[in-house]
Design a protein around this nucleic acid. Structure first.
Lengths: 230, 230
DNA sequence: TTAATAGTGTCTCTAAGACAGTATCCG
DNA sequence: CGGATACTGTCTTAGAGACACTATTAA
């Protein structure tokens, strides 16, 4: 019945690309990096940074994603996570294709310091249509980030090395798009213990200085319980 | 610096396969379907059902996963979810390969009724080494299922169309490998409202009959709050 | 009636939210 | 000192666990 199930036969191979949703918080707004495509299809249009897997160079898809980021953005990546793999015969005019999508987070300072000229940061709320199914990929990325933010240390990767608890709470609130209780936030963050105070270091301003904290480990930590849904 | 970044050049394409972790609860034990490989590499060894993407036949990777399941198992799939995409130059001796892994859940009754002869169900706790990186894929699948079980209706897909709340609690306990409080469980399940009683239908036994329930929608529903970790 | 499982009422306890208080800086 | 922000103590409240109770069947 199923002639194609002959296990010895080799099949024509699909195209394999990686596409990266590079996100940061610029002026309190969650933004995505878009590049102007240098080749067909969609040459000249803004799209997610991405490209072919280089089988003679990349040791993994993660590797390919990092290479793409290095090439397009040249930024220190605080966090990289595989998102989802999209596929089909018609999503790319070059033929049956597989796109392994990634989500990357960087602190705003990195973006400001070292972004290439042909990359622009666009607020996720102001995204118009994108080539291929890149719009869907961005939606998956935003949903994933918001989801993980509710029960993990993920938003901390949008901040520099050291930060105050007020700054940390602010990033959580921006990513989750929700208000968090100040007391509960401190309690929870301190209980979970994924940050530690940097002894003797304070953020100084016009008011009382605030204790600076840093991540204990530079990996994602999950909480015992999620933030309330509000 | 990066000679390989020429955007016009086509690159050699990796092999693309799908591998499926088909799981069910057989006699209260979480089991995974393994098939004896019909071709090299690892011919004759037990491995996850999987195969090449057929670009002239499959409309998506999900499609390919369903085809593989149809071919190897011939079962009605209650739940199918993409897991993770593994990759690398050496995970498959045939060359640089990409494996898109899937997790599928089926009720035990389906398995008992219609499993093919060369497929065996093995308890996840008794898995030995598997070819390729299939062991890692199984680990990802089990972790994902346990994770989702703690905050969604996922375990319900391991049950037949109708079930009692006691049966539902039992599958949650088996999947999570934890005891759940009976009162809290009923409260939570009823509050979340993803199941509805089938009016007038009862499971009859040697004792008081139990109300039968069914899923309201045949899609995964997430809870407001997760089951406690304790 | 008894054994067994289905289902409910309610107390306790934990953790999140609310709110008011104290602490420490700048000017 | 006042204004502003950092940080803390504690009351209230929502939801999970514990436990005792009632309900309904077969034998």
């Amino acid at each position: 019945m199923n002639k194609a199930s002959d296990p010895e036969r080799e099949y024509p191979r699909p195209i394999v690309t990686v596409d990266v949703v590079l996100m940061t918080l610029l002026d309190d707004v969650l933004c995505v990096a878009l590049t102007s495509r240098r080749s067909e299809p969609w040459k000249g249009h803004l799209a997610l940074p991405g490209g072919y897997v280089h089988v003679n160079e990349d040791l993994s898809l993660d590797d390919a994603a990092r290479r793409v980021l290095e090439d397009k953005a040249g930024v220190r990546i605080a966090y990289l996570e595989q998102l989802y793999t999209l596929s089909g015969p018609s999503r790319d005019p070059r033929g049956w294709s597989v796109s392994v999508s990634y989500c990357a987070l960087v602190p705003a300072e990195e973006i400001r310091a070292s972004l290439k000229a042909d990359v622009s940061m666009v607020p996720v709320s102001k995204l118009s249509a994108l080539p291929f199914d890149h719009r869907r990929i961005v939606d998956v990325a935003v949903t994933r980030v918001q989801n993980k933010a509710s029960y993990s240390s993920l938003p901390a990767f949008l901040l520099p090395e050291t930060f105050t608890l007020a700054e940390l709470q602010h990033v959580y609130e921006r990513v989750l798009d929700a208000r968090l209780d100040r007391v509960s936030f401190r309690r929870k963050i301190e209980d979970q213990g994924f940050v530690e105070p940097v002894k003797g270091e304070f953020r100084k301003g016009a008011q009382r200085p605030a204790q600076l904290y840093r991540l204990r480990k530079h990996v994602l930590s999950s909480f015992d319980r999620a933030f309330a849904t509000g």
